[in-house]
Design a protein around this nucleic acid. Sequence first.
DNA 1: TCTGGGGTCCTAGGACCC
DNA 2: TCTGGGGTCCTAGGACCC
Length: 414
Amino acid sequence: MDGLPSILHADLDAFYASVEQLLDPALRGRPIAVGGGVVLAASYEARRFGVSGGMSGRLARERCPELVFVRGRFAEYRRLGDRVMEILGDYTPAVQRISVDEAFLDVGGSRRLFGEPAHIAAQIRRRVREEVGLPISVGAASTKHLAKIASQVAKPDGLVVVDPGREREFLDPLPVRLVWGVGPATEARLHARGVTTIGQLARASPEMVRGLLGAVHGASLQDRAGNRDPRPVRPSGRGRSVGAQSAFRRTAPTPDVLGPVLGHLADRVAGRLRKADRAGRTVTVRVRFRDLRSVSRARTVAEPVSCTLTLREIAEELVAAALVDHPGEREVTLLAVSVSRLEEHLAVQMELPVEGDDPHRPGSPSGTARMAVDRSMDAVRRRFGRGAVGYAAVALSDRTAVPDEFRELAEHDV
DNA sequence: TCTGGGGTCCTAGGACCC
DNA sequence: TCTGGGGTCCTAGGACCC
């Protein structure tokens, strides 16, 4: 798949930490971590000490005694990420945003206006630096996958253009871990077969790779390694599921403790669904035990759910079922609730007369009462913010608690 | 390093239908 | 009576990504 390098991948460097250093000059050049109990992001200065995202704050401090912790200004991350995306949008409408700080662009149609892709990439980097004040790395190549690898190689604060005809030369010596879809488990299996570079994966026997990793996964990884994965840049679609989870210290799984946690999670999930005028038919819960093993239970219902109380009840039943199946587990460390098989579903709807009183039906008398509760909560929140009313965030989580603003940054569009 | 929170996709196997 | 074979929907778990 040699061709003109018209795909760009733009990725802000150590985004949260860079924003903090931008907003507070005293932090520049110093090792900083965003977060407290858990490191949500680390500056490059901190990474040199072995500090990385997901690490406990205590370990990070051990590795880097002069590490500066900052709380995190999440609204600023959203605002500055949006400004960067606006700059990208100046060069093409074909922008596929992957997360708050990362996007693909197809600039194939932008040559006449803005010049060659390499030139556009350089302009983007300069404008983001001058107009926003942040470092951004860009990769330019003939495919999304190759552009993404190029931007990773370019970091920090660099530009890598993979010229047509030189794709193999660029790709072959790189570690196989850089292939999109190769995580720790796949990497270990490939290493066990002596496959450590992308070139080796590209040239390995397809039978061996498919036997090792499964037909579909194996074939797609080899396509990527061989640069035969021509997926187009397309503006991101709507999400397929909505979920929320909460980790906490070891807790005996009694209904009086887990009920409020599930109420809070159901409220977050159902509130987002209603805001997007959607509802879903499959409810899934996940329960994690002390040893970090987890189990899930799911139920698909006939009528799409977006009501907080209904979701909470289903979640409670599923969690109870999971616990019954694992009677030996005396402590729980995480609960998750998610809703999938989403459908369009206007949150404000007519009261439909139906016989019986199944509260799970939106038109039933008690179903209508439930919706009225949701609607008035939603209205109060629209005026006064999410924290104004509702299920209190549960205080089970102390050290590991992550602020709601951070959760919102990770949310995909529903 | 014992691990936060948001997602996606894939697979195997069972239930059920024709 | 026992049987083939395909399709769909669903559940549980795993791997991966940002």
